[in-house]
Amino acid sequence: MSEFFKPKTVKECIDLLDQYGSKAMIVNGGTDAVEKINTGKAQPEAVILMTEMKELKKITVKDGAVHVGGAVTYLQMLKNAEIKKNQGMMIAVGAIGSPPVRVMATPAGNVGTAAPSADCTTMLMGSDAKIHVVSKKEGERVIPIDKFFVKTYVNVLKPEDLITEVEFPAMQPGMGSGYVRLTRRKVQDIGKVLVSATIEVKRGRCTKAVIGLGALNATAVRAYSVEEALVGLSRKEAQEFCRSGLPKEAGLRPSRYTHYKEITTPVALERAVMMAWDQAEGKVK
């Protein structure tokens, strides 16, 4: 039998996490947690629900960065003026589950679960995001998202840690983002190929690129090789480069879909980068 908690403050929550450690389970949306509890895959002693954590339910902009609180839902994100400027993020978040799922599910929960094919996580990877974490013993710390994941469903967090916010750069003029997911049906499907891109363009050339790949490796990954190669390229050159082959960071695992991923990832990459490019050049609002 599990004990059920609905903490109202971060302090209250990290005290509970400190007390129960690995026997606690945070339900921050519940898309994965509730399924695990229902099917008996997880039998936590303490279930900690995040819905009352008012202080973590805000989206703010500070020093050129968007800070999404640890209990902010996807629905809140989709309605937020600042998030609306981020084309890729809107597409990624809008593709998650279904409308009822997006009412409950959260980006912090998504990152915490560490699924390899998570939409929001992949977009955050392609946004150079940082994860803010707090625990009773270690206090606050900030972990860049590319150092956050260890393997499938495992991240660097300890059982006592609480994700308090997810931070990523706010959109500026000359910046654009894109997100592409390849799926077996139009909605409510886990993507087989996920690509996110945030780029900066000046005078027709790419000056900075951040690329995230999902559903290809054991975790979402950054495609540094693509990022480096894109800098200095024109739109057409960038398009050609994306098409030229599978990014070397894509470590495809053997499955029924390996070959499909191999031949379609370059297409998805091209489309995500071009989508971002168009936004950076003001072709989309």
């Binding site: 077996r184 049906r185 139009k186 909605v187 409510q188 499907d189 886990i190 029924r256």
Partner: peptide, 16 residues
């Protein structure tokens, strides 16, 4: 069977 759930066995949604 590889796909014995609605997670892996696809049926059309209203959007399809």
């Amino acid at each position: 069977m590889e796909n014995a759930t609605f997670h892996s066995y696809m049926i059309p949604t209203a959007m399809d």
